[in-house]
């Protein structure tokens, strides 16, 4: 369970930004005649080995409460990332470290670091509609998914590809299928739909607010809507985003998790 979903990670998590930022570098014209596998493979290859630093605000709305978090996020390749809460003040300093398939949380109130057990990887991250598992990035898409183009043409006047990702039989992935809509012009995603057992839609992720960070056009606004609770959302907005910063794996250590402010 802990190690699932690659596309999931790169679309949902911080790795997403790194992935998407590369997309415009790929000459779109060269891709037009290629297969879905080649498209995703290029994205996937280019995604790896990138580093980033971001300031993000996350709005979580549920049936029972809503709250807003300010986050600082660092990532390195597909293996490492670190998220620190800056606000609300009561929880400031709370941090999550992800290394390979493992997740640790640092709780400043009790000054303890806790490793998230495998049984809770599917649990919510900080009350949001992301799971701990969503935050864990690893591996390459093309190894876990059979990828095909489900649709090619105009949707609402925009030329898009709809790429269908179906997990290979042996892949440890909870989704039955993921469909990802990508604009042909700039290779930016517009939405991703996640299907569970029986091809039932479980959640939708929409991308919006395309803006340029460090010379790269990326969707700065990302919204997750669970299919069973359409009035609940988690919205992630990127306020600052830096690429190719100087980070080494040492940065993503348990010591750094608790001491860095």
């Amino acid at each position: 369970m802990a190690d699932r979903v690659r596309i999931d990670h790169c679309v949902t998590s911080i790795g997403l930004i790194a992935a998407l930022s590369i997309l415009p570098l790929v000459p779109p014209a060269g891709l037009s005649g290629q297969s879905a596998l080649e498209i995703v493979d290029r994205v996937d290859r280019l995604m790896r080995g990138e580093s980033s630093q971001a300031r993000v605000s996350m709005e979580i709305v549920t049936e029972n409460w809503s709250r807003s978090l300010d986050l600082e996020i660092w990532s390195l390749g597909t293996e490492y990332s670190l998220v620190r809460l800056l606000a609300p003040p009561r929880e400031a300093g709370t941090a999550t470290l992800m290394v390979a398939q493992e997740v640790w949380n640092y709780l400043p109130r009790v000054d303890r670091t806790i490793k998230v057990p495998p049984s809770l990887m599917m649990g919510s991250w900080m009350g949001s509609h992301f799971t701990n598992d969503d935050l864990v990035k690893e591996g390459r898409l093309i190894e876990d998914y059979d990828i095909s183009i489900a649709f090619e043409g105009a949707r609402d006047g925009v030329q898009v590809w709809e790429i269908e990702l179906v997990p290979k039989p042996e892949a440890p992935i909870v989704w039955d299928k993921i469909v990802w809509q990508v604009r042909q012009a700039d290779l930016l995603p517009t939405w991703a739909r996640y299907y569970g057992e029986g091809d039932e839609l479980e959640r939708t992720m929409t991308f919006d607010g395309y803006r340029t960070f460090g010379g790269r056009l990326v969707p700065a606004l990302l919204t997750v809507i669970p299919a069973d609770k359409p009035r609940e959302t988690t919205t992630v907005r990127y306020d600052e985003l830096l690429f190719d910063i100087d980070l080494s794996p040492d940065f993503f250590s348990l010591r750094n998790l608790r001491t860095r402010r």
Partner: peptide, 15 residues
């Protein structure tokens, strides 16, 4: 350390 998602959405935690 006891950690529970609280009713206000925060992560309740204490020793």
């Amino acid at each position: 350390v006891l950690v529970v998602p609280a009713a206000d959405g925060s992560m309740g935690n204490d020793l």
